[in-house]
Amino acid sequence: MPELKNIATQIRRDIVRMVHACQSGHPGGSLGCADFFTALYFDVMQHDPSFNMDGRGEDLFFLSNGHISPVFYATLARSGYFPVSELSSFRKLNSRLQGHPATHEHLPGIRVASGSLGQGMSVAIGAALAKKLNNDDKLVFSLHGDGELDEGQNWEAIMFAAHNKVDNLISTIDWNGQQIDGPTKKVMDLGDIGKKFEVFGWTTLQTNGNDMDDLVAALHKAKTLTGKGKPVAIMMHTAMGKGVDFMEGTHEWHGIAPNDGQLQKALAQLPETLGDY
């Protein structure tokens, strides 16, 4: 899937440039999830960049781990929600592109403020139930960090979704084994997340989140599993910082910006494919 891979490379390039320009932000998780966002917005999800806030008649996406806003903004811009040039305003005063996605600036593509970890699952479930009440057959997608699952509210929501047969929901877990304070195994060992979801009553899939072919196949497979009485969860194995060798696989790049020299090293590994903003 060369076209999707080229888009993901450009989005990674956007991410490091955005975070460098304001010397603030979260490049690690953003880089790791670039393939997922590309697959979702450019292949899997039925969505409308003209953006209607209530989202009737289209698939919806909710980002729970809102600190990876750089990849979300770059994806929205590249898929036509707002001008790509606006990426240059990331985290600046009066920008619509704040550090965490927010709704008060009415940025197209953002339906809920996120960044307070652990809340996105509940929001996604609410949206999925609303679609059922409205006889809307489209799906709700959500993304969550593995470290974010330390928050207890997630597990209440996970139980609720299974009990209430919220089977129009596909939630993906970015299972990169890293969080802000270190490896998840040291901070709070999560064990086998997939088995936990299964015990809680979900249908689960596994995928390599940095292999575009495998990822797209898993997302499409997940769609075929909806409507069968169970919510669906994808265990997406990624490398934090994927695409930039000195950022890969470490929590150290969770929330710091590259300096000038590091930016140039990163860009040398991420060829411009769609044109920079």
Rank of each mutant, 00 (worst) to 15 (best):
V112K: 12
V84T: 14
H163K: 15
H144E: 08
A128K: 00
E86V: 05
L97C: 05
Q153W: 02
M159C: 11
E151F: 00
A102E: 15
H144K: 09
H144V: 05
E105P: 04
A161G: 10
D137F: 11
F90N: 08
I125V: 12
A124D: 07
E105N: 14
H163Q: 15
F160I: 08
K92C: 11
R111I: 13
L129W: 12
S89G: 07
A130N: 13
G152F: 02
A130Q: 10
G120Y: 00
S85F: 05
D146K: 05
I125K: 01
I158V: 09
R91H: 10
N154T: 01
A130R: 07
V123F: 09
G120A: 10
S85M: 05
L139N: 03
P108A: 09
N134K: 15
D137N: 15
N94P: 07
M121R: 06
H163M: 11
E86K: 06
H106N: 15
I158A: 02
K92I: 10
E156S: 10
N164H: 14
E105L: 15
R96F: 00
S95M: 04
H106T: 14
A102T: 15
L117W: 07
N134R: 15
N135G: 13
H104V: 14
G118Q: 01
G147D: 01
L97N: 04
L149H: 05
A128F: 03
